[in-house]
Nucleic acid binder design. Sequence first.
RNA 1: GACCCCAUCGGCUAGUGGUUAGGCCAUCACCCUUUCACGGUGAAUGCACGGGUUCGAAUCCCGUUGGGGUCGCCA
Length: 433
Amino acid sequence: MLPRVRFAPSPTGWLHVGGARTALFNWLYARRHGGTFVLRIEDTDEARNTEEAMRAILSGLKWLGIDWDEGPEKEGGRGPYFQSRRKDLYLRYVRRLLDEKKAYEEKGAIRFRLPRRVMSVPDLICGMVHIDLSAEPDLTLVRADGSFIFHLVNVVDDLEMGITHVIRGEDHLSNTPKHLALYEAFAAKPPAFAHIPLILNKDGTKMSKRDAGAALGEYMAKGYAPDAVRNYLCLLGWSPKDNREVMTLEELVARFDLAQVNRSNARFDLDKLEWMNTRHMMDMPLPRFLELARPHLGEEGAKDPAYADRVLAAVKDKVKHLADLPAQTLYFFRDDFPIEPEAMAKALRKPGAADRLAELRARYATTAEWNAAALEAELKALAAAKGAKPAEFIHPCRAATSGRTIGPSLYPMLEALGRERVLARLDRARSMT
RNA sequence: GACCCCAUCGGCUAGUGGUUAGGCCAUCACCCUUUCACGGUGAAUGCACGGGUUCGAAUCCCGUUGGGGUCGCCA
């Protein structure tokens, strides 16, 4: 039987990295085994649910490349996929428990009689876990106001939706015996459970929604590559066991399985995510980079899309975060870009810089082919002819054309800027040396 | 507090009785170099502790300590 798994967030806040990774593991498991990934919205807490949070969760999942086979915007045979629209169903299950005296009413609420014995949870990751329910208080299923409690709806939905594997955070492990008791009361076969370790903050405390860096939206806004965030998240609690770290989506799908999921919690390490991000930016094909980067360029990029793409290609291997793009590429789009003090001091105000810029300007004015290779050959030939090191031309040229001391490789940068801009800027800079 | 899970460099991890305990991030040094990066080489740093089992434990068992989680009419 092909697996059916689900991610069941409650729309009470933004998607956080822990939830994102849980979704990812479920999705990966489904894709790896040709199963079905269901997205179910657990909106039973009407007071705290927001439409905004719902949209944030969906867009976060999509951003990570996670699609669902059944769920919101994609109705399947087991819907509806919002718990707020399944109340009749829950009521039927509760009535049945009431009829069979397995539940009772108390102060208007309905409570489930927990079996007072040791329950065993066969967990795919933690092994067999025995938990004694003898001292546990009965489980409330329905509030006095008639709304339903998580444990009830979660179990009923997993049952009704034919979920075969419940992959969720380890924080649910201790509650699982109660869920098992519910399955038993419904005379139903429970799904397999796999409790994955939690993601901790850098200081080892549990990462929760409000912690710094916990919201996936932050990474989306700062312009991380989803390929990198997804890859990094997978490496928290899972390992392909062969020292491979940088992997594409396809590679992750091909390698992922529950058997290689760890039992111990992992800390979120921003430094490594940064590294992973630049790695992915450099490794990814240009078309993919353009697709991710274009939206971050803003108005400047929209004026001349072809030029914008050339700019992006030139800076691709140097970008840390896509959100930095507007500031980082300002000089490509505006002639009134600032000349940084450091560029002024270290390059333009050097003795002989003005002459070099003039010589280079003359040379570039007549360069036949305006491309990186030709520009490099011209500059080096000029340097050799003047008995100077290429660097003595390179640094003033970079400062003059970009106003900065750091940036992409010079020749591709000049090629992208185009002859007209480069010559004008070399002229302008001479008067500032 | 009770119960549950966990424990290898600072972080993420490989390792399932015999290894010089490996890789990646971060750190430091050097090399490469048109800047910044990238890349390369090297360094430093680890099996939480105590008992067992065994010819032999990072690996198996028990305990201690530490960390995390759960005990809601939150999910």
